[in-house]
Design a protein around this nucleic acid. Sequence first.
DNA 1: CTGAAAGCGCTTACAG
DNA 2: CTGAAAGCGCTTACAG
Lengths: 343, 343
Amino acid sequence: MKENHAITIRDIAKKAGVSQATISKILNDYPDVSQKTKERVFRIMEEAGYRPSHSARTLAQKTSKLIGVVYAGRINADFDHPFFIEVLNAFKRTIGMHGYDLLFFSDETFQKEENFYARCLYYKVDGCIIIAGEDVQQSIEDLTKSEIPCIGVDIQLDGPKSGYVMTDNKKISQSVVDYFYLQGHRDIAYIGGANESAVSNIRLKGFRESIHEYGLTLRPEWVIEGDFFEQSGYEAGLSLFKGNAQKPTAVFSSSDLMAFGFMRAMQELGVSIPGDVSLVGCDDQLAARYVQPPLTTVRQNKEKIGRLAALMLLDFIAGRASTARILVEPELIGRETTASLLL
Amino acid sequence: MKENHAITIRDIAKKAGVSQATISKILNDYPDVSQKTKERVFRIMEEAGYRPSHSARTLAQKTSKLIGVVYAGRINADFDHPFFIEVLNAFKRTIGMHGYDLLFFSDETFQKEENFYARCLYYKVDGCIIIAGEDVQQSIEDLTKSEIPCIGVDIQLDGPKSGYVMTDNKKISQSVVDYFYLQGHRDIAYIGGANESAVSNIRLKGFRESIHEYGLTLRPEWVIEGDFFEQSGYEAGLSLFKGNAQKPTAVFSSSDLMAFGFMRAMQELGVSIPGDVSLVGCDDQLAARYVQPPLTTVRQNKEKIGRLAALMLLDFIAGRASTARILVEPELIGRETTASLLL
DNA sequence: CTGAAAGCGCTTACAG
DNA sequence: CTGAAAGCGCTTACAG
């Protein structure tokens, strides 16, 4: 019972009077070990307080049962992005059921030139989940092009063993335009997210297309570029409603935060929501339920995205699939910032 | 350049015409290697695309440069608890600057009887951060009592190499009672969190003590037990304001979510906030700024808690300290759900 | 400043 | 059903 030397498979083998190989087989659920030996060995391991070693196992097996979590891109790049969190949460649960743990790579910025691919090799991760922020850096390129299975969330990966899952962002805009149209709105403005964001650009494109499909015209000054945060929505509101120019009757803000800012601007200007202008946000953050009036918004199915990401990655790892591109349906949540013009 | 066999230290040694030991020393920044050799070796590693192996290194060194993240307890036990996220975020940044990566243990529930301590030994983590939820399970006991350095957040750990950092929860209640008192409130009610939560109990105790210190009386029916979530705040509001019993002029809700629920109840009952009753929440969630009226609440310094946790854990690991108990000051954020009775 | 050798704790063919 | 032996890729005294 000397404590300075970890108890190894060797010690157990000796005590049980069998070979190391047998112990290893028992540990790895090989079928060809007699039940009797198995039970004896388990008892001995228990008594001795045996603990296997991940590093020894990984070194020998060349697989770590670890999934790397990579957050690509700038800003929001932290854990506190609510979308990121919820997706990852569902991902973790699913992947955990299959015996994998999650390895978070600390921000590269603090490391000397190391790239993600190198770190994946270093840890021998079995796969990676890559979640996109804005302005995705070049350094993840190596990773996605490699033989390491990768699943992207909100980022279109296409390497030999990678795929992605994201909300159908085009449909987000379409559903909002549909919704507004059915309420009688014809003058619809758009407040966009940061244009380094791929997702943001898809939404804008979808918006333009929908407007066209309905044969509506889109004034250039009704497409405003924000940055997803509150202040930019406030400023967008001012620029849309302050002057004497024609005003839209409906506004789609591609984030809830910007919608909150827009509401603040309207309040200052004495413009009533939804009396004078209807507003739809995007994200369905908790606060969307509590603003006054409660915000109509579009919700992404984060739980589903996370679960799908996990399942797809597991398929890549198992070789059951080598690629997949999945779009998940968004859902419009009607609340009280929108009103029909048709009554 | 055969791709099926990883390039090892051996290959590099051979190409450079030196021993493996020398390569290892270079990799580990030993001082006693000639600059010339160093440069040559680095060039060769670069050309060959050499990648070190974490498992081999960990096996030999018995230290992994990994920090385990353990979420103890039930519910909220997920990533989406906003407090958890922000603390962890600051923690990760700090720890990352010191070359550590984070290992998240997938929920035990899905594993067969494995406890956290076993997993820490398995991965040979250098330390752990343990974040408390409610109803902390026995299984982390082994871990905190062990020789593995542990830092607790919102949970009082005391093992040979552990400590904790949390907000001074007693002071949260004190500061709220002070604030109410100075505004002229004498009839103050309290909506508590789940009573399996240690933090929640400290807050309640602090509340009772403060009330006593001011010589005020606390009616038993003015202390209501909630569960931190919205609905329980709503119900607390109803039970406080529906009957004919005497009503408090001020309410401290120990979570923002419950405060939102309370506001909903008041709205239904036609009770004005802050006209008829003042309200203070706790957490300063994003939504607190957007409810109508904006919620006065108490903010924890999550950034500081996370940074301190990281620094303390690093000290434990380095042997510069073996224990520490730190309480961080809360901050009351005055907004518009509170009004003075003295004017 | 450099190297030979043993060892870290497992797994994997292979033989029996 | 079981075992002997080599190997995974590094580090660590120790000797020179």
